[in-house]
Amino acid sequence: MASSQENTVRARAVRKRFPMGEGYLEALKGIDLEIKRGEYISIMGPSGSGKTTLFNMIGGLDKPSDGTVYIDEVDIAQLDAYELAWLRCRKIGYIFQTFNLIPVMTALENVTLPMIFAGLSNDEAISKGRGLLETVGLGERWQHKPTELSGGQQQRVAIARSFANDPSIILADEPTANLDLKTGHDIIELLRKLNKEMGVTIISNTHDPSMLNVSDRIIWIRDGRVDRIEARSDIDINVGTIGGDVLGGVGSADSHGGAAGKHAMDRLTGEATNTGE
């Protein structure tokens, strides 16, 4: 990683409290991080570690109780509703665990929706949308509704949609959790390819050990704090292809990640028996 690159996301002493009963639950207890342009980041941590809260904070979906989150050096707490919508429309692309395509719209309409919000004309949006669907390998299926697509195909549409307005950041919330292993793998490959080709920053919340393999850095969250940050060169996770290698990959993640790795293994074994989703 070139250290001269600009930070695209920066968190300074970020705390988040949620009211709970009489008192407060402190989900984040002072997080500091810097994410550089073009990086591929995985956020890992056990359930309840504050991972999702941090993720929402970075994505401009929630504001910190204390501390500051900067997106492209702008303190998001100072933005009003319109400015936040603008940011979400143009600077950030979202990929969801459950794909979240608009059910009443075709694949192409789903991809062009953010462009329409950004004020592109219909013709421009359609030609750009067709191009993006081509990029994710769904050029032929643009007229299909989400219910007529498989999980992997839906997630591809969602990826094309997240790139609609040439964002600088892609936020992916467990993008492979609802997919079978092979499809999850393809999705990760696709994200990595787009990250390399378009230079977009990808921040992914994940339990998937094969995601770690392509990440530039992994941020481990534990109990509302950054437990440690590892660069890919520091760890050696080889998930490889499906088959015998998978278990090796999980074992390796486990030895590195403790509880999170354990979690990843639970999820992985759960998925192996439930690939129909």
Binding site: N7, E73, W86, R90, A118
Partner: peptide, 27 residues
């Protein structure tokens, strides 16, 4: 870490961008 641009500058840039490109409410 050295800051390339100040926060005021960043907000100013963002708001300039916003003036040239709006968020539409497509009827």
């Amino acid at each position: 870490m050295d800051e390339q641009i100040t926060h005021e500058e960043a907000i100013r840039r963002l708001r300039t961008d916003m003036r040239t490109s709006s968020v539409a409410t497509p009827f």
